[in-house]
Design a protein around this nucleic acid. Structure first.
Length: 453
RNA sequence: GUGGUUAUAGCUCAGUUGGUUAGAGCGUCGGAUUGUGGUUCCGAAGGUCGCGGGUUCGAGCCCCGUUUUCCACCCCA
């Protein structure tokens, strides 16, 4: 006998769990559609060449590669095998990989299908992605992302709409969140001002950890990357900026007065804040200069959403990228998007127990019977109920009452229709309300209204 | 990739300094109750103690390896 198991970092979902997950997906989906986004899907696997090099060195390691079918070893020489260079050999053994996120496949999609889409293109995509990470709290090897992106528009109105979407999704899900916002141009400006422009990635990665490891450790990490002490000293007042968003922006303007890029970033954020002000966003938005985000294709605004009542990593994140399609040969197309981490949202909802009580997916009425004749008698009833949109099922074999009732109880079915000799003679069924225990002989019409209430 | 941690029935977990036949609750199945579930009572089935090796007269317990779980780091949703 084989012990059943699934790969590490993956999960099964029971019907109850799926009902809860669908609640999340449906909520997110309906808000996306409210703003005019259209759904696309892309394959689970992409050509490795599409994925490699897009997520940095670390990302390449975390890609799941798919072994070539057939004799995958045939294209390799003995010398290559003896070399035991796994990076080189993966290129020979695997030419496909599982998608790591939805943004890069989307960029590929846009370039490949540009004749069929009109810009600005607003798309959403809800699909699983895979990362060969070590699983831990809130981190899985297979998880869903819910991406919304607009490509082909530079307008900051898009940033505003994404913020509105975040606001609305979490309002509907009843999760208290805080939106953190920053701008890559500001970060670049800072790096420029302190004279370490080319170390921008190291600097951002380090200051991204600010709220986790604190100022001192951040400085240590920056120093370890070979950044001069005078540059670090210049960085300190910036890292310690405080006050309201407007105050921070005001101070930044003086600090970044020598950097054109930096000032542009400040101006962008100012516009975004003003737009938010004018439409009214109920979620708290905070300018956080320590927000950097790892993915290095971001070039403008960057966002991150944190749940306030649960200790978990960010549950939504994104930003603007000026030239994502460039690598696929389509220059000058700017995009901005965010990604909802459905699995982390699911964890948050589980911890706070914020699911709606009744699920639309549930069976409303179960037919219980005593024999073949009764089963046949039920079939037209079932058909009518289903035609009028009532979820109905029948216990498919004439088992003991206890068993059939137990089935209804386990599935939390609110009504049971009992059918035997007496009911058939009367042309009715015995409808039992499982919560109150009341039961009554009823006709079809009476059942329709009874079940609906 | 680094460090720690976990693994015993379908599930959640007990299991003494290493000592006879490895236990409980829940769930499942049967019965009390042949037209009534969620309560109660009785009974039954269900185990290669993750896997492989070692120490020992004897291993669920100790040692090594491996896989797995969870956690932290790296990184990230």
């Amino acid at each position: 006998m084989q012990k059943p198991s699934i790969p590490k970092g993956t999960r099964d979902f029971t019907p109850e769990e799926m009902a809860n997950r669908n609640y999340i997906f449906n909520t997110i989906k309906s808000v996306f559609q409210l703003y005019g986004f259209q759904q696309i899907e892309t394959p689970a696997m992409e050509n490795l060449s599409t994925l490699m090099g897009k997520y940095g060195e670390e990302g390449d390691k975390l890609l799941f590669k798919i072994l070539n079918s057939g004799d995958f070893i045939s294209g390799t020489t003995d010398e290559e095998l003896l070399e035991r260079n796994s990076t080189k050999l993966t290129g020979k053994f695997a030419e496909k990989g599982l998608r790591y996120d939805l943004t890069v496949p989307f960029a590929r999609f846009v370039v490949q299908n540009r004749d069929k889409i009109s810009f600005p293109f607003k798309r959403y995509q809800i699909q699983p992605v895979w990362r060969a990470d070590r699983p831990q709290k809130g981190r899985y090897r297979e998880f869903y992302q819910c991406d919304v992106d607009v490509v082909g528009s530079d307008s900051l109105l898009n940033e505003l709409e994404l913020i509105q979407i975040v606001d609305e999704v979490y309002r509907r899900l009843k999760i208290n969140v805080c939106i953190k916002i920053n701008n890559r141009k500001i970060l670049s400006g800072i790096a420029e001002i302190i004279g370490e422009a080319e170390k921008i990635t190291d600097i951002t990665v380090a200051i991204d950890k600010m709220d986790k490891i604190g100022l001192e450790k951040v400085n240590e990490e920056i120093a370890s990357k070979g950044i001069t002490q005078s540059a670090i000293d210049k960085l300190q007042p910036i890292l310690k900026l405080s006050g309201s968003n407007a105050e921070k922006l005001f101070q930044l303007k003086t600090v970044l007065s020598g950097s054109e890029t930096g000032l542009k970033g400040v101006a962008e954020l100012e516009t975004i804040f003003n737009l938010c002000e004018s439409v009214g966003i109920s979620t708290k938005i905070e300018l956080d200069l320590t927000l950097a985000r790892g993915l290095n294709y971001y070039t403008g605004a960057i966002f991150e959403v944190k749940a306030l009542d649960v200790e978990i990593g960010s549950i939504t994140g994104g930003g603007r990228y000026d030239n994502l399609t460039g690598v696929f040969g389509m220059e000058g197309v700017s995009g901005v998007g965010i990604s909802f981490g459905a699995d982390r949202i699911y964890d948050v909802l589980n911890q706070l127990n914020l699911y709606p009580e009744t699920s639309a997916e549930q069976t409303q009425i179960l037919f219980v019977s005593f024999g073949e004749k009764e089963l046949m008698y039920c079939l037209p009833w079932l058909k009518s109920l289903r035609n009028s949109g009532i979820n109905a099922e029948i216990y498919p074999e004439p088992s003991k009452m206890k068993k059939q009732m137990g089935y209804a109880d386990n599935k939390n079915i609110p009504f049971v229709a009992i059918v035997g000799e007496t009911e058939m003679k009367e042309g009715k069924v015995m409808l039992k309300n499982m919560k109150t225990g009341e039961q009554k002989l009823m006709s079809l019409d009476e059942i329709m209204t009874g079940v609906k209430n």
